[in-house]
Write a protein that binds this DNA or RNA. Structure first.
Lengths: 338, 338
DNA sequence: CTGAAAGCGCTTACAG
DNA sequence: CTGAAAGCGCTTACAG
């Protein structure tokens, strides 16, 4: 308590608090000498900036918010899908390198989030996934820089980073076709407008069409993006289809499929080929290893932070940046040729 | 921008900012009428509290910090072990219910963390795992309430929540013994003083002793708590021991063991029985399902928040609280009788 | 190149 | 029961 403040540094150096502040924030170019004096004193006294004060006075909080979808409104366990913990980890790391702290909040992503943004005077927000129109409207009221991750819904012209999901869907399906499969099921989370699943679905259909395979709605199954839903849909798949392969748009669901098939004594890949999407760590952990469409989640987080940082720093220049990260097939053991 | 402030509310209601503040914070008991007037105005104007200002003026930030161990100093990917994302999720959720936001930071848990605590004026800190003496020293300087999770190193008398790790180690080993195993390997992360592994190790030895089985150092292997290390140690285990079962003190490592054994064509549980610790989601995802010592991670996070909240609110009354959560065996398919 | 001073939006003794 | 006012620790025009 009774902390070292900028005043103490001023006293110690014989300079004014203004000069100390200028030195710390590098907003005015001060002579080398002055800088050294200030930084020496800071070092000596062990001064650290009080962000509450700085945020109040200057309207920069060095705090960024990350919005992550929740399975159910108001619930915990935002991280049941490891994709989110992996990307959050990357965001936190990259933000830290730039001097920002991260507030994750399971706040229902509705108008309410706008409150958090104001209460904490967030410098920027990274939004992962797709939300209701209300949510974006609410945020629009503030002028906080925003970066969208994995969203095709961008009526507000925010910066965004995503994958070529269409290509991913295409490649996954094509990979199965190249391995001789013709009856290929498609399992995913809800086909929500603006979400990644729709794009992946389109890629799936394109690959089918290109190979002269007739698309059938009977091979399509959707649920929620979690392990249990994967299990449930796997069972339904076995009961209602005679497919030889399945493309599942989320590894966490694909793992559920693997598990259920194993329980049903259906061998992967001997009796059924499975390909996922994400290349989560668990795709590597499970047995058989899951062949999947790999994305670089660390880089995704990094790019999101980079874009946000630029937007925060440059206020103006509202040209929209869109970064599309590459995807690749990661071959493991869950697909076989027939 | 140009936000609604307490002043606007004061103007709207014809009261002073002091009264509005009192109403919001409920620190003085105001007449029902006044409260209603204030809250109606707040509702009408859409006022939200500016936490920066509140933190500056009042020294309560409604912000809590969570310290999570890092595999390597300064690195990202704090969440390679899903245990951390699971407990963080619980902490965030429970903190939110009480009106707190959470800052996770991969800050190296050294003296530096003290800076974060000051910069952000944290109301409290939850520390998961065991750190260097420096770290605790640094924190001691502030008077911020702290709750330790999974630590036996408590020279500073902080509140803490943990498991009966000794009992867990005992039960796991006993379970294997009851299934006819006598040569039981022990695999864990570093046996760091004050950490959970030491306690689990003691439980392991106790069970052995009780069953009249001679302890052998040759059956002990330690590494880092991650998937890859699990794989590596599994190989070493197979090459150097003739055990029939292994107790691994972390599911994430046990999953690595399962994977490597599968690669080596050693069947679990036919050729080798494996029991883990944690009951992570992935213990359920993998095949065969991992039998493990289950802990309630959600509750662990919840209790940590509860203790912290009490400590924040009650300033005084420095009696140390210690909560020990129960553990249980979760039976799946990775252990067989011999 | 540097400083005096106002102000950011709250909280809280203190007075009435 | 309510209000005037000081103060928390910064930042930033403005002046010199």
């Amino acid at each position: 308590m009774n902390n070292i403040t900028i005043k103490d540094v001023a006293k110690e150096t014989g300079l004014s608090t203004a000069t100390v502040s200028y030195a710390i924030n590098g907003k005015k170019s001060l002579p080398e000498e002055t800088l050294k004096i200030v930084f020496d004193a800071i070092e000596k006294l062990g001064y650290v900036k009080n962000y509450s004060a700085s945020s109040l006075a200057g309207n920069t909080s060095n705090l960024i918010g990350v919005v992550i979808p929740q399975t159910e409104p108001g619930k915990a366990m935002v991280f049941e899908n490891p994709f989110y913990s992996e990307i959050l980890s990357s965001i936190e790391y990259n933000a830290r390198q730039k001097g920002y702290h991260v507030i994750v909040s399971g706040t229902n992503a509705d108008e309410k989030y706008f409150n958090l943004a104001n209460q904490r005077n967030l410098d920027g927000i990274i939004i992962i996934g797709v939300y209701s129109a209300d949510f974006y409207e609410g945020l629009k009221k503030s002028n906080i820089p925003i970066v969208l991750v994995d969203s095709y819904l961008n009526t507000h012209n925010y910066d965004l980073v995503k994958l070529d999901d269409y290509l991913g869907g295409y490649k996954a399906t094509r990979y199965l076709i190249d391995h001789g499969h013709k009856k290929i099921a498609f399992i995913s989370g809800t086909l929500k407008e603006g979400g990644v699943n729709v794009a992946r679905f389109d890629g799936y259909k394109k690959a089918l069409e290109e190979a002269g395979i007739t698309f059938s709605q009977d091979l399509i199954l959707t649920g929620t993006i979690d392990f249990e839903s994967g299990k449930t849909l796997a069972q339904r798949m076995i009961e209602t289809m005679d497919n030889t392969a399945v493309f599942c748009t989320a590894d966490i669901m694909a793992i559920g499929i693997l598990k259920k098939l194993n329980e049903m004594k259906i061998s992967v890949p001997d009796d059924m080929s499975v390909i996922g999407f994400d290349n989560l760590n668990i795709a590597n952990y499970c047995t058989p290893g899951l062949t999947t469409i790999g994305q670089d989640i660390f880089k995704k987080g990094q790019k999101a932070v980079d874009l946000l940082y630029k937007a925060i720093k440059s206020d103006e220049s509202k040209k929209v940046n869109e970064i599309i990260l590459p995807i690749d097939i990661v071959e493991r053991e869950s697909v076989r040729s027939i």
